[in-house]
């Protein structure tokens, strides 16, 4: 090795060592981090629980976000931030983020189309599944409970911009949301349409419809129905995103 090569090597080592010793602006040029500056990277705080593309996780309570209408997702983000939906870890993450950024996050997850996960087969009895199927497709006129498909779309993939899809979600999650709606822990703009319905549902109704919805196969098209394509059963929806 020549003296010059040796000197270069020592200089390089000294340089590397000094870089390691000081976390400073110099790192901007030498960072080993290769993640692109993109919205994908900026939502990494979400994807740890909700899946890399919002597909959901194996945990019952971290729902699929992918493909839900952007207005719905934005309304939920804002509701967590403003305390209308009660889940402290979400409120904590979103507390100081501006509307414009929540819209961008909502649009990102709305545009994702990862495959639907394979759901565990529900252990509910045939009678329970039959009730779930009936409530989903027909509702219960005697008790003024509209069918899920009357607002959430014939294929249950939701309706743009504000009505969520109900597929690719686990039974425990759906059940928890219906319960939270009933007890006012899952607020939305007034009048709160869903709460009117969940007030009329019994615990057995909720268990049945949750089991049935979680058993449904992947839809042919994951896209939500377009706005205005469905005459809604109730006209008290969430309206424009606030």
């Amino acid at each position: 090795m020549t003296v010059k090569a040796m000197r270069d090597r020592i200089l390089r080592a000294v340089f590397a060592f000094s870089l390691c010793s000081f976390a400073s602006a110099t790192f901007a040029q030498t960072s080993s981090v290769t993640l692109p500056d993109s919205i994908d990277t900026r939502v990494m705080a979400c994807t740890g629980c909700h899946g890399a593309r919002g597909e959901g996780s194996h945990d019952d309570y971290y729902p699929r976000l992918a493909g839900k209408p952007a207005g719905y997702l934005y309304n939920q983000l804002a509701a967590f931030r403003n305390g209308q939906r009660k889940y402290a870890p979400m409120t904590y993450l979103l507390e100081y983020l501006p509307d414009s950024y929540l819209h961008e996050m909502a649009q990102y997850f709305a545009a994702q189309q990862p495959p639907f996960p394979k759901m565990p087969t529900p252990t509910a009895s045939p009678q329970v599944m039959a009730l779930g199927k009936k409530l989903t497709n027909e509702g219960d006129k005697a008790r003024d409970i509209p069918a899920c498909i009357a607002c959430h779309g014939a294929s249950l993939t939701g309706v743009s911009p504000n009505i969520p899809g109900l597929l690719g979600l686990r039974a425990k999650y759906i059940s928890a949301q219906l319960g939270a709606s009933r007890y006012g822990a899952r607020g939305s703009d007034h009048p709160n349409c869903m709460q009117k319905i969940t007030h009329r549902m019994t615990d057995s109704d909720i268990a049945a419809v949750s089991a049935w919805l979680s058993s449904l196969p992947e839809p042919l098209s994951p896209a939500p129905a377009t706005e205005g394509s469905l005459p809604l059963a109730l006209t008290c929806g969430t309206g424009e995103p606030k």
Binding site: A45, C46, Y92
Partner: peptide, 24 residues
């Protein structure tokens, strides 16, 4: 445990965020 987003500010309206790991 909790992760967190720095505040969205006039100078940095789209902050990067730290994921929570309490659940993992």
């Amino acid at each position: 445990l909790n992760g967190g987003y720095p505040p969205g500010t006039l100078r940095n309206p789209r902050p990067y965020g730290m994921p929570p790991f309490a659940q993992d």
